[in-house]
């Protein structure tokens, strides 16, 4: 893989190794994320795909035994450099989690909270409406903004979490298996939404649903577990190529369902 600095990648990892204590969870990842595209990370359970995703906005900082080697560049800036504030990183790189996790607050507050703590100066009402529209949730909740976010269905909750992330105005949205707790119809809605959002945002999605990666992403990275149980990236390229013409035998085995 190439190593020259290339500022127009949204995220670029260089020789990244991720550890939990002495256990190397992920090894030697060199990955370039193209802005305003959807990149899917797929692979079997335990291959470290979530660990990689969570290292992109320093969510792993909260795991005391976590350690990382290498560099993760956000528009050329190493987000793990000494003088980088992880809070600022997370304002630019938002996250949507596996299980919908709205705050036990009103729908309005769920969306407004992130903007408010980040010092948003404009009209909050407008921002809330706009982001709920962007998250394709406005029509369903506009009369009930005071109701608890937890009163919504699972799919609506997940779109609320997406709206909440959008309200902070990030550039990148990380999605960690956002549809794994949702039914197929809610899943399809999220996928349509992702397509819509990718005009403005860079989206990186971890999924164990291969059809989802094939349907919804522009680029796909295939991870697997090595003999030492460390995850590694086997193959990375345009989604179409990965799914129709994989170069590596392991990728082919996985996507054709022979393994994993």
């Amino acid at each position: 893989m190439t190593h020259e600095t290339n500022n127009h990648y949204a995220i670029e990892t260089r020789g990244v190794n991720l550890y939990y204590g002495n256990f190397r969870a992920v090894k030697d990842v060199d990955l370039q994320i193209v802005p305003q595209k959807i990149t899917a990370i797929i692979g079997p359970s335990g291959c470290g795909k979530s660990t990689v995703l969570r290292s992109f906005n320093r969510m792993n900082d909260f795991v005391p035994s976590f350690r990382m080697e290498g560099e993760i560049l956000f528009h050329g800036q190493n987000i793990y450099a000494e003088d980088v504030d992880p809070v600022m990183v997370r304002q630019r790189i938002g996250m949507v989690f596996q299980k919908p996790n709205p705050f036990p607050k009103s729908i309005y507050e769920n969306v407004a909270w992130g903007a408010r703590i980040n010092g948003y100066k404009g009209n909050l009402d407008e921002l809330v409406e706009q982001t709920l529209r962007d998250a394709a949730l406005w029509d369903e909740v506009k009369d009930n903004l005071k109701k608890s976010g937890l009163s919504l269905s699972g799919g609506q909750q997940q779109r609320l979490c997406i709206a909440r992330a959008l309200a902070v105005k990030p550039e990148i949205i990380l999605m960690d298996e956002p549809c794994s707790a949702l039914d197929p119809i809610a899943t399809l809605k999220i996928e349509e939404l992702m397509r819509e959002l990718s005009r403005q945002y860079t989206i990186i999605i971890v999924t164990h649903n291969m059809q989802q990666a094939a349907r919804a992403s522009d680029y796909t990275a295939f991870f697997t577990m090595d003999d030492d149980r460390a995850g590694l990236m086997v193959e990375y390229g345009e989604t179409h190529q990965i799914f129709t013409n994989p170069r590596d035998q392991r990728t082919e085995d996985y996507i054709t369902g022979r393994f994993g």
Binding site: V87, M88, R90, Q91, M95, F103, G114, R164, A165
Partner: peptide
């Protein structure tokens, strides 16, 4: 639940917030 803290941190919340 830890997931609520992660949600808040993921939005750029500080520890205090």
């Amino acid at each position: 639940p830890q997931s609520l803290r992660e949600a808040a941190y993921g939005l750029g919340g500080t520890r205090l917030e």
